[in-house]
Design a protein around this nucleic acid. Structure first.
Lengths: 109, 109
DNA sequence: TTCATGTGTAAGTGGAGACTGACAGGTGTA
DNA sequence: TACACCTGTCAGTCTCCACTTACACATGAA
């Protein structure tokens, strides 16, 4: 994980509304409209937050057809576990240099 | 750690400039003007970032007198180690309820 | 055909926070 | 006195992002 990914991750979680989203999704998947109702949030706003969380890899969404033929966009938490201390931050910054050197073909890591 | 503290921590680290500050302070303490020069950042701006980092407990500053009588404000990293996954986030949110119940006299955790 | 449900996006507003420049004050040295 | 350092803060600008309103488009049921 380089510093860019780390930053995306941290700024995604570091927001009160998105913490609430994570809390709400913890028990299991929910579709967007239902989630918006529970949080008392407008749907477009929720989309923005979900998009941000998805880009950071915290959440995954998939379109599903319900029994009665309605398209429902379900979101669920993606497993993540990040440790945050001086060493892990420095490691992320150092990773940038490696990315630079390797260019294409990422190191996985 | 309740969700408010967690949020302060995450939004403090989740910023490119502040990551750079942490990187720069990792080898050892520095005083503000020197740090500003290294980062190529104005001093007032640096103060803002340092204040934010200090409030989140990532950094500590102290005023010191150099040998030649100049006052220097040194900052150094505070030790921190936070693990971030669904469980730790939920734990922070649950902590809010405990804070509410206990009111004053914090639980230290 | 109308209503209630859902997805998805475009366009605009408002406010917080990132950032700058300029100031006032202190010290030691030439 | 003047200069080169330092700390600390105020007042302003500007940019980003959180948020709203409104739209287009589907489906199934009354």
């Amino acid at each position: 994980m380089d510093s860019e990914e780390l930053l995306a991750f941290l700024s995604a979680v570091g927001h009160a509304q998105r913490i609430r989203i994570i809390t709400e999704l913890a028990p299991g998947q929910l579709y967007v409209s239902e989630l918006a109702r529970r949080l008392g949030v407008s749907r477009p706003l929720l989309y923005m937050h979900l998009e941000r969380l998805e880009k950071a890899g915290l959440v995954v969404g998939r379109l599903e057809l319900s029994d009665d033929g309605k398209a429902l966009k379900y979101f669920e938490l993606a497993p993540f576990d990040v440790r945050l201390n001086v060493d892990t931050i420095l490691a992320a910054v150092r990773q940038d240099a490696s990315d630079e050197a390797g260019q294409h073909s990422p190191e996985g890591s």
